[in-house]
Design a binder for these strands. Structure first.
Length: 477
RNA sequence: GGCGCCCUGGCGGAGUGGCUACGCAGCGGCCUGCAAAGCCGUUUACACCGGUUCGAUUCCGGUGGGCGCCUCCA
């Protein structure tokens, strides 16, 4: 039952999460005009894990991650794909669900679609018009920015300083160049649109989040999250729309840093993207998650093959630990790791080995949770996890206790699957037989034969690891 | 130009006014029939210049460099 603190972008202060009420978290999800990339996955992972951690500390958390499936770019991309925009958006939304599902973190509690929130959107716009914070102009509806005195408070800008760079010559429908669209009148060629009190059209970019957040979490909620590139104008405009309509909005803001390649933000427009699905194929879900939590969420995170391979190596180190110290988990009740040959039954048992030269596994686990409670410091938390692995590997602490503590830690950050490595390793009868034969050859000091068998096993995809207690098969990475 | 962030060892990446982050990679060693796994050791890390301080990588000021947003963007 820790006090969880986060840094609030709005005030710049570290604030305590209120545990007396439901912790509503709204995180901006993707605009589905293409498959998502690694950078898009960062907020999904960060906020999913934050909600998981809060729950484990006794908070009631509700995580909402929306899908923006109405957008100019969707029309364009659909046209290029030769598809109707609604069908295209649906296809991309499905792909987004599939891609994020593979991360193995479960689903957010709610995943609203903009297209399913139209009535709440038009209601909100009507209220803004009534309050004279918005106006109609040739079928478009605009938000009257200067009518909302607090405009700029999130991104720390003053309306006086804002760039007035409206394209000269274009006859604007706006009263003021700072104003932004809440509703856009239907244009020829746009094949998805809705009826509204102001005629056919579609919502502008920011309004859907104001509407979805309120629909799922009510008018005032604990945390609004998203990428740091959304601070302005997207989140600033969300605040304006909701608060001008008399609805209190998010009480705190969290922004994750960008994933970058060569010190440049990964973005679809830069063309330096690496798709999430590709990363999952190539490196596995655990490595992708491990990578995304390898840096503090607020900082930028370097991306590249080397970083991903490091994540693979980290994850392998954790798996190796659980190969030596199996824990029960999930539905599997049998021992997940089986040794062949060796002096089984002899030698010190897990419980007997291990002194107490280092901090206890329990204190490591507490330090891990402390790090997460301190503005969700995942890298500091993971350092504790690796310290514990080291403690246990050199037998400074009892293995079973370490395994239990480490399993809890990894579960918290979505890496629980590492505690059950090599599922089905015993299912390969041919490999098991070969392994026994090799052990016989080794016992007879026929190392030529033993190595032949090892090569054969390698061809079958198995790596042989010998130890004093026997030999083990591990899937080749 | 405005607002904000950053500059840590070969790489990634935490953190702190004085005590080994952690991971990866390299090198040497231990263990092993060999290997893998694991363990041990290892390459004077905190951009630069001032200031505060008994002491600064950590606080303050300046210089240089990089990034994000100000237009679509997680």
């Amino acid at each position: 039952m820790r006090e969880v603190r986060i840094k609030d972008t709005l005030t710049g202060d570290v604030v305590t999460v209120d545990r007396s009420a439901e912790v509503g978290i709204y995180a901006c999800g993707p605009t589905v005009y293409s498959r998502i990339h690694i950078g898009n996955a960062r907020p999904f992972v960060v906020f999913s894990l934050l909600a998981r951690f809060l729950r484990s500390e006794g908070y009631r958390a509700k995580l909402v991650v929306n899908v923006t499936d109405i957008n100019d770019k969707i029309y364009v991309a659909a046209r290029q794909a030769g598809e109707e925009s609604a069908a295209f958006a649906e296809r991309m939304t499905r792909a987004y669900f599939e891609d994020t599902e593979r991360l193995g973190l479960g689903r957010p509690d709610a995943e609203p679609l903009a297209t399913e929130t139209i009535s709440q959107i038009t209601k909100l716009i009507s209220d803004l018009i009534e309050a004279e914070h918005a106006y109609e102009s040739s079928g478009d509806i605009y938000f009257r920015v200067r009518s909302f005195a607090a405009y700029g408070k999130l991104s720390n800008r003053r309306t006086e300083d804002m760039d007035q760079g409206e394209e000269a010559g274009s006859a604007s429908l706006k009263e003021d160049s700072l104003d932004f669209a809440l509703w856009k009148a239907h244009k020829p060629g746009e094949d998805t649109f809705w009826d509204s009190p102001w005629g056919a059209g579609r919502p502008g970019w920011h309004i859907e989040c104001s509407a979805m957040a309120e629909a799922e979490l009510g008018p005032s909620f604990a945390i609004h999250g998203g990428g740091s590139d959304l601070v302005f104008p997207h989140h600033e405009n969300e605040i304006a729309q909701s608060e001008a309509a008399g609805r209190p909005f998010a009480r705190a803001w969290m922004h994750n840093g960008m994933v970058e390649t060569d010190a440049e933000k990964m973005s679809k427009s830069e063309g330096n993207i690496f798709q999430l699905s590709e990363a999952l194929d190539q490196y596995g879900s655990e490595a992708v998650v491990a990578y995304l939590i390898s840096g503090h969420y607020r900082q930028p995170l370097a991306f590249g093959p080397q970083q991903m391979e490091e994540a693979v190596a980290q994850v392998e180190r954790l798996r190796n630990f659980f190969r030596e110290h199996p824990v029960r988990g999930g539905e599997s009740e049998e021992s997940p790791s089986e040794l062949v040959g060796g002096d089984s039954g002899e030698g010190p048992s897990e419980q007997q080995r291990g002194g107490s030269a280092g901090p206890s596994p329990e204190s490591r686990r507490e330090a891990f949770r402390d790090a997460l409670a301190d503005d969700f410091n995942t890298p500091r938390a993971m350092a504790e996890a690796f310290e514990l692995v080291g403690d246990a590997n050199r037998q400074d602490v009892p293995g079973p206790q370490a395994a239990e503590a480490l399993a809890e830690m990894l579960d918290l950050v979505g890496l629980g699957s590492l505690t059950q490595p090599d599922q089905g390793a015993e299912g390969d009868d041919e490999a098991q037989k070969l392994l026994e034969k090799r052990q016989e050859a080794r016992a007879a000091k026929d190392f030529g034969r033993a190595d032949e068998i090892r090569d054969r096993l390698e061809e079958l995809g198995w790596e042989v690891r010998d130890s004093a207690e026997g030999a083990r098969l591990v899937p080749k990475g």
